[in-house]
């Protein structure tokens, strides 16, 4: 899936601004950004529901709307949309018919998401978790290779989130499907995603593997030593940055505490402190999207 230069303006708000990124096949891509970053708008444009002002999205080289049988290629959960008076099973049968699939698919996907016992109940009486499952079941009807999910964990309890993570991991890693999953929390996709695409205020902030991001989050190590110059020389090397942080104190990045301790020992440098300050993935994500929130709460109080 290729997104090229997507742009969409609603009145005075530029929801998505010249956004380009690639979703690699067979991987789980986390589509991250704070509230109002333009994730939903981007996904809806990619699926032909919103007409972009500029830009294109292709799936396997073809725009979604030009796919011959889109449900067999791409499954999407954008919101939990169904007629409240229709049973979950009938809801699925409607889209089986429309997509030219056998009606038996409805029962198969119901079983896959564990909704069989509630199949004949009105969808309007479903709990939030059941609605999410029904949405997922709808997306799976055509047994698509590509799944697009917009905040699928919204409103799920911890148990539901656990189930969803396992299910998505299975769909992606065991069945080899391509999954694009949006979230405003990195932690939500941390355990499932291989790659991340991070957006802020409609623009691309970062695109890359989660491992790259993890390396970035390794953070810095604070070292106190009476022999600052000797230590700086001992740890110097490619990919290592050393800065002075006051008299007898250094900040080292690019090495772990173990590595620094070892080099100091070999060089015979005396250490008074060796402490790691890891920023963590969440913090890297926070730093990347800082200032990009559309509706950030003002901090402090007026009292």
């Amino acid at each position: 899936m290729e997104v090229r230069g997507l742009t969409k303006t609603f009145g005075s708000v530029t929801a998505v601004d010249s956004l380009s990124f690639t979703v690699e096949p067979g991987q789980v891509t986390g589509f991250l950004g704070p509230n109002g970053a333009g994730k939903t708008t981007t996904l809806r444009m990619a699926l032909g529901l919103i007409t972009p002002d500029r830009g294109t999205t292709t799936i396997g080289g073809t725009p979604y709307a030009a796919l011959r049988q889109p449900a067999r290629h791409v499954g999407a959960v954008l919101e939990t949309a169904f007629h409240p008076g229709r049973s979950g099973r009938d809801h699925l049968r409607v889209y089986c018919r429309a997509a030219g699939l056998p009606a038996s698919r409805a029962d198969e996907v119901l079983a896959r998401v564990g909704l069989t016992p509630a199949a004949r109940r009105k969808a309007g009486n479903y709990s939030l978790g059941m609605r999410q499952r029904l949405g997922l079941a709808t997306a799976l009807l055509g047994d698509p290779r590509v799944l697009v999910l917009d905040e699928p964990a919204n409103g799920l309890d911890p148990e539901g989130i656990q189930w969803l993570r396992g299910f998505l991991r299975h769909l992606a890693h065991d069945e080899g499907r391509t999954v694009l999953i949006s979230s405003h929390l990195l932690s939500e996709v941390e355990q499932t995603a291989d790659r991340v695409v991070i957006v802020g205020a409609g623009k691309l902030v970062r695109e890359g593997s989660l491992d790259e991001l993890r390396r970035e989050s390794a953070g810095t190590v604070t070292v106190r030593t009476p022999q600052a110059d000797a230590l700086a020389a001992a740890v110097a090397g490619p990919g290592v940055a050393v800065t002075t942080a006051g008299p007898g104190a250094l900040q080292v990045s690019g090495l772990t505490t173990d590595e620094i301790g070892h080099r100091a020992f070999v060089a015979g440098v005396e250490l008074h402190e060796l402490s790691a300050r890891t920023s963590g993935l969440e913090e890297v994500y926070f730093r990347l999207t800082a200032g990009a929130e559309q509706y950030a709460a003002t901090s402090g109080s007026a009292s």
Binding site: L47, G48, L49, Y64, A65, A66, L67, P70, A71, A76, L78, E79, A81, F82, H83, P84, Y95, A98, A99, T138
Partner: peptide, 17 residues
């Protein structure tokens, strides 16, 4: 009803034309 119950989304996903 497609708009009222927001089923326009799955309906137009299955039939983009």
């Amino acid at each position: 009803q497609e708009y009222r119950h927001r089923t326009a989304t799955p309906t137009f996903l299955v039939t983009p034309r």
